[in-house]
Every structure is written in C-alpha cells, then in structure tokens.
Amino acid sequence: MSHTLNIRIADREGALVRLIGLVERRGYEICAMDKSAGDAGIADITMQIAPRGGERRIDVLMRQVARLFDVHAIRQGMPAHIAAGTARPGGFQCRHPQ
C-alpha cells in the first residue's frame, strides 16, 4: 500500500538528504517525489512512498519525520500539484486523500 506525504521543511543544507534517508532507513521505498522551491527558506516536499517488505505503520513514520529538527509540518494527503489541479504527465494517483 502506498502513501502520500506532504512535508514542509526548512530548506537548508542537509535537510532533504536527512529526510530521504530517514524514510528509506525506516523501511519505505520512495516511489515519487517533488520539491517546490519555497519562500523564506521553506520548501514543500511531496512524497509517494510504499513499505518495503512487510507492512509498516505510516503514523509511526510520520512521527519519526515530524521529530526531525528541519521538519515544520507533515500530513498525509494529496500531492500538491494534483490538489492544485495542475497534475503533470506521469503524476501519481493518490489512494488515500484526506
């Protein structure tokens, strides 16, 4: 089962690799990802992820992401560009819209 996460992070050195590393290390494959260049040092990340091997609890991963110092907010939801009606070719399906 795949999940979509919307994550707002401080757009500083190492923040993205720390986030990606955590998600991979905690047993998820990143199927698709999008990063928007935000204002004032903030970036919005949208990730579609799927557990590698057995099922894992997405709420636990979300709390593990949320405790990263660089992460301002996380929610499970729709990819930003789909929500905005600007789905691109190759954009992914969101199975669990909020």
């Binding site: 190492g14 690799v17 720390r18 590393g21 990263l68 110092f69």
Partner: peptide, 16 residues
C-alpha cells in the same frame, strides 16, 4: 562526516 553520521545524530550542522 555530515553524510556519514546522518542516521545516528539527532541533528547536524555545517557552519559555513
């Protein structure tokens, strides 16, 4: 070392 230590730190900073 920033990259090598990522999985085992609470946080890390490079001061430029």
């Amino acid at each position: 070392v920033f990259g090598m230590s990522l999985p085992v730190v609470k946080h890390s900073i490079i001061v430029r």
